[in-house]
Amino acid sequence: MNYENILISIEEKVATITIDRPTKLNALNKATISDLSNAVESLSKNDDVRVIVLIGSGEKAFVAGADISEFANYTTVEGAQLAAEGQESLFDFIENLKKPVIAAVNGFALGGGLELAMACHFRVASDNAKMGLPEVTLGLIPGYGGTQRLPQLIGKGRAMEMIMTAAMITAEQAKDYGLVNYVVPQEELLSFTNVIAQKIIKNAPFAIGKAIKAINANFKDGKNGFDTEIKSFGECFGTQDFKEGTAAFLEKRKAEFTGK
């Protein structure tokens, strides 16, 4: 499939999606959200891909927000529809994907860009990264899950402050807050992220997917995370990966997982 605003490369079972709108600091518009949604869905079905990494083109920005020109004249109904469609097609879709998605935050991650990074399963930042949710400066609030995911990641008080002040934080502050897992030099960002991805790839894909589901369940209304964990734990016993993993352990060799 040809994409308008993203580039995809696959190497050693890691698919890297590069958001490629450098003249707009990789801002999210409808076409880019559609490209990302279609690409992630396609890669989720590709057996040669075990981990997905998201990054922005260039060194200035991961995603510097949404493309404001697209929705400046929207009505209340159109605004709500924009948020609902974006959350369903991309942000929630990534969060609940069975394959791990890592955000490699290179530069500015603002507004919808930070919301995209937060929808990923975890984040690695370059040392020049800056993050924030500036929507209230436009008379809006975050609409792609920011009011929900930011408190889950950094706590209610800090999330309230970040959203209400619209302030940007540095990569080191983001690490201190628990918003990103690591901060590395810009030139090492992708290689460092790929080292983590390779560690993930060594493990059982089915089990990783179930772990993602169980962890996410703890943050969803009406879901009992412990019940989800128990059910998911049991389902792992019916897989070839479980048989291979236990056999490899007992035979003192490396496991070869297939995801089945």
Rank of each mutant, 00 (worst) to 15 (best):
I8C: 04
I10D: 08
V14C: 09
A15E: 08
T16H: 02
T18N: 14
I19N: 01
I19H: 00
D20R: 12
A27F: 00
T32A: 14
I33F: 06
D35E: 08
D35L: 02
D35H: 04
L36P: 08
N38I: 12
V40E: 05
E41P: 09
K45T: 07
N46Y: 02
D48C: 03
E59A: 13
K60E: 10
I68T: 13
E70M: 08
V77M: 07
E78K: 09
E78M: 04
G79E: 01
L82H: 06
G86M: 02
G86V: 00
F91N: 03
F91C: 04
E95H: 11
L97E: 06
K98N: 10
V101K: 00
G107F: 04
F108R: 08
G111Q: 01
G111C: 12
L114M: 08
A117C: 05
A117S: 13
A119H: 02
C120K: 05
H121G: 06
H121A: 02
A125N: 01
D127V: 02
N128S: 15
K130V: 15
M131E: 01
M131Y: 03
G132V: 00
L133V: 01
T137D: 08
G139F: 03
L140W: 09
G145H: 05
G146P: 06
G146E: 02
T147Y: 02
Q148L: 09
R149V: 06
L150T: 00
Q152W: 04
K156Y: 05
R158V: 07
R158Y: 03
I169G: 04
I169Q: 07
G178M: 09
Y182G: 02
V184F: 10
P185M: 06
I200S: 01
I201S: 10
N203L: 13
I208K: 10
I208S: 04
G209Q: 07
G209R: 01
A211K: 13
K213D: 05
F219Q: 15
G222I: 11
K223E: 14
N224R: 12
N224S: 14
D227N: 10
T228E: 12
E229H: 13
I230C: 08
S232C: 10
G238M: 09
F242I: 14
K243M: 12
T246W: 07
A247L: 15
F249P: 05
K252R: 11
K252E: 10
R253C: 07
